[in-house]
Nucleic acid binder design. Structure first.
Lengths: 351, 351
DNA sequence: GGTTTCACTGTGAGCGCTAACAATTAGCCC
DNA sequence: GGGCTAATTGTTAGCGCTCACAGTGAAACC
């Protein structure tokens, strides 16, 4: 390490070969675990690798093999429980399959931002991407792009000619709604997520369908933006519609609320409590997501649990199968649907 | 796209050059925004690029420039608010600086797992890494590694000869503790995070110091693992030590609790409520992190807010400065400390 | 013993790009 | 119009690796 020389170049395969007294190709064979290398040769090479601290050059390898073994992920706000969990599941599955994961987080959900994100990943040499941007605008923008690598969407709906993985949001909403109806409520109110989110929309659909099938009235849904604050505001609104004094359950009155995510449910609960209402006595509540906190709300929140690890695994499987399939095999546009699960807690049942 | 041919190879710079009637070098110049290219030539090249849908080959570029423009991040459980937010801040700052981010999430916090993670990133050609693994074991393991690229730690403490960024946890703990003491409490109890986490330890230190400086008794801290459940258990323990009946504040009795994170605080609050205790009337509570839910707990939680975006930015700045500094400039081991902020809410004040 | 067959190792080319330099053209001055 | 400079373009040589193929020697077979 002389003072004048540039940052020392890392050793190359040729350096290793020289030190071990073999050809660079033999070094390559050792590193690729090729069977036909004499044990003593292999040992010498490994020894040389060790003393030199040699590592294969990623770029050179990628150039000749045409594989970067890197997948891109376009994610959204990772402080929401769902996206964060999915991201984690994706990464685990990718690593398992031998791929790196490069992530881009979108802050605004516009078509332009999506293109920027994909462009950035594309410049980074990813072989394919998973897009978790479950807003209508970004999804349609994605459908309009012609990309030179495979794409898989998560929670992007199944209407697009793109392989997709999603949790059956509609089913989840039905499960909750049916659960509340079964508990004897005349109908179930709903605090929805932001209307441009497909998941929010699907939950509304499931809730509506469940009510209609049960012959229950469908009250107008309130709308939030996933945040506790928006839930709180919706809760104040709802509190005004709870039967006061007599427990007579008249039409138009709130006795049960399905909130589209747990964070908003927390806000709703707070507003109801401030209004002096008891839960589940006067109003039963249920959420969606099963965040770690949900079991410790007061009362513990009935909710829907989604298997995000499974979502991540499925997406990677879909993507990797496209990357590794021979070009001759036409891979159809698979759709994978993960079933959610109802978690019943004290917010919906008096027991 | 004939049926027999392999997956069509993407066009190369030579293809573009041929179509535009120039040399490949001119194409390169256009793409690198070199000034000395005639406008008409540039237009022709751009036209050819467009019709061919050409994109520069990442690997070939990286091979010759010796730059992958990719940073690695070793992160931990991203469903915790802090890590997720930091990751987000890192990614934003990296993109701003023109770098990709490859992420590896650790699931177990052992030295071996850390080495695996770093190895994986290293194989992916990262130019440097940010390690957010704030456990003692992983931090010491990291210190023992001799890596061929720059490393920056986040929340890894400042004892290591490694550039580091962290929030002043000790200060945060002092702020909370002082706040509670100022409210008239004789002393403040503590529910700590897992002992192998440096942050947990620093918060204990800050809490202890604040108490000692105020001449207050230092009660034995309870220990949790960041989860609401562990907080709940600690809360049950604490509930048994709250003065019952008379409000006399005797020594050894609990009137104020500083919980090392908001999730555990939620558990504590639930346990206290189940024990029929009022907050902040009988017991004042404060947390740490300021998760989005904290303002909607019952009562709203006094807590410490950390500027994770700033942490992310600082780490990237530190790392990138090392990558882009000429080798001759000796970059000292900088330490950056971000100051946290006390957020006072209803859980600690009766107003 | 000569041929055949392996197991093992080496040689050469080239992946697609950028950097350095060479070559050409155009612009400008007197 | 010659000669100079500056602008523009082309040529060549790798970056460090893997692939395809060509060797080499020793064991195996008749």
């Amino acid at each position: 390490m002389s003072r004048t020389e540039e940052r020392a170049r890392p050793p190359t395969m040729a350096d290793v070969a020289h030190l071990a007294g073999v050809s660079h190709q033999t070094v390559s064979r050792v590193l690729s675990a090729h069977p036909n290398v004499r044990a003593s040769t292999r040992a010498a090479v490994l020894q040389a690798i060790d003393t030199l601290g040699y590592r294969r050059n990623f770029s050179a390898r990628a150039l000749v093999t045409r594989r970067t073994l890197t997948l891109g992920v376009v994610a959204s706000n990772p402080t929401l429980f769902g996206p964060a969990s999915t991201l984690s599941g994706l990464e685990a599955a990718a690593r398992e399959a031998g791929y790196m994961v490069s992530t881009v987080m979108m802050r605004r959900y516009t078509a332009a931002a999506l293109e920027d994100a994909i462009d950035h990943l594309s410049n980074g040499g990813v072989e394919g991407i998973v897009v978790i941007v479950p807003q209508r605008e970004t999804v349609t923008a994605l459908a309009g792009l012609r990309l030179p690598f495979p794409v898989v969407t998560v929670e992007g709906g199944h209407d697009l000619p793109i392989p997709s993985v999603s949790v059956d949001q509609e089913l989840g909403a039905r499960l909750v709604t049916d659960h509340l109806l079964a508990a004897g409520h005349r109908t179930v109110w709903h605090v929805a997520g932001p209307p441009d989110w497909l998941e929010a929309e699907a939950r509304v659909r499931g809730w509506t369908a469940a009510l209609e099938e049960a012959g229950a009235e469908v009250p107008p849904p309130l709308v939030g933006d996933w945040t506790p604050l928006s839930g709180y505001r919706a809760g104040q609104e709802l509190a005004g519609r709870v039967a006061s004094g007599s427990a007579r359950r008249r039409s138009g009155q709130v006795t049960a609320v399905f909130v589209a995510n747990d964070q908003m449910a927390l806000g709703v609960m707070r507003a109801l409590r401030e209004a002096g209402l008891s839960m589940p006595g006067q109003v039963a509540i249920a959420g969606f997501d099963d965040i770690p906190e949900a079991d410790f709300f007061t009362p513990p929140l009935t909710t829907i649990r989604q298997d995000f690890a499974a979502v991540g695994q499925a997406s990677i499987r879909l993507l990797v199968s496209r990357l590794e399939a021979p070009a001759t095999v036409a891979t159809e546009n698979e759709r994978m649907v993960i079933e959610p699960r109802l978690i019943v807690r004290g917010s919906s049942t008096s027991s």
